[in-house]
């Protein structure tokens, strides 16, 4: 027998999705409630006193950034827990002993994590329409960015899950790196609003490119070119893939 172990991929994907459904309140309700709060505070209370940003109302302006914030944190946490959990419980032996290659395992785990992120992203988008007027100028690009970001950061989360030796390490990257970068990455403002040198410094923040590209697909405006956004996301994805290929070849942190 040769070819792809489709049953294996499906088994992982289905089990991972079942895990999400088991914790549906945690996985769906939390981001929805958080987002609603952001809209009430930033969009409603503060936004009403703010001028338009680039011709878009402040409430609408922050929608892409908010979705991006959830996509990043959700993708990372879903994928990292997905692969960390078997390490923690010891069931990893089964994954390692199965006739499953690295690509198949990654498709199963990362695919499930990304699916969940996309669903959450869409739920947040739907929630947002209750609070503000959302237009989407380039729906195809919007979906493309949604998928690409979910996949890329699920891959990144997968890496974190393999790297992490305990639950603290699992939480440290999302809370100490990703969340600050997202808040400083133009989710709630255009980096044009920043004084120098912070504007230039912001250009070194990778999240700026993600938020900018995503916002462009909504309103046709971004802090950086859409090409740069795409190139950055794809580049980061490639880096994650290279790291993963290395991990599976050497068995780093997986096999003694």
């Amino acid at each position: 027998m040769s070819g792809i172990n489709l049953h294996g991929i499906w088994a992982i994907y289905r089990t991972e999705m079942a895990r999400s459904i088991r914790t549906v309140w945690q996985s769906v309700a939390t981001p929805v409630i958080t987002t609603a709060l952001y809209f009430i505070v930033f969009g409603g209370a503060i936004g009403s006193r703010m001028s338009h940003v680039g011709g878009v109302g402040y409430g609408a302006f922050i929608v892409p950034g908010l979705i991006m914030l959830s996509l990043l944190t959700q993708s990372i946490s879903n994928a990292s827990i997905g692969i960390y959990f078997p390490k923690f419980t010891g069931t990893m032996f089964e994954i390692l002993s199965a006739p499953l290659n690295a690509v198949e395992a990654v498709i199963g785990y990362v695919g499930a994590a990304a699916t969940k992120s996309v669903v959450i992203g869409l739920i947040i988008l739907a929630t947002a329409t209750f609070f503000t007027d959302v237009r989407i100028l380039h729906p195809v690009w919007m979906v493309a960015f949604l998928l690409l970001t979910s996949l890329t950061f699920s891959l990144f989360g997968f890496l974190i899950g393999i790297w992490a030796k305990n639950f603290e390490q699992l939480a440290i990257i999302p809370s100490l790196v990703i969340t600050p970068l997202t808040f400083l990455g133009g989710a709630f403002y255009s980096i044009d609003m920043l004084p120098q040198p912070w504007r230039t410094v912001s250009l070194f923040n990778p999240v700026v490119y993600l938020v900018s590209g995503f916002r462009w697909s909504f309103y046709g405006l971004g802090d950086v070119g859409v090409g740069a956004s795409l190139a950055f996301t794809a580049g980061f994805m490639a880096l994650c893939l290279i790291a993963l290929a290395w991990i599976f070849r050497t068995g780093w942190r997986l096999k003694p």
């Binding site: 049953h7 294996g8 089990t15 419980t89 069931t91 990893m92 032996f93 089964e94 199965a98 006739p99």
Partner: peptide, 27 residues
């Protein structure tokens, strides 16, 4: 392989975890 240590996805049911193993091994 039946390893020495018991390691199970504790939230899964017996049937689901056994089905999972079969799928994982490509059947």
């Amino acid at each position: 392989l039946v390893p020495q240590e018991i390691a199970l996805d504790m939230f899964s049911t017996v049937l689901n975890t056994v089905r999972f193993s079969r799928g994982l091994f490509g059947k």
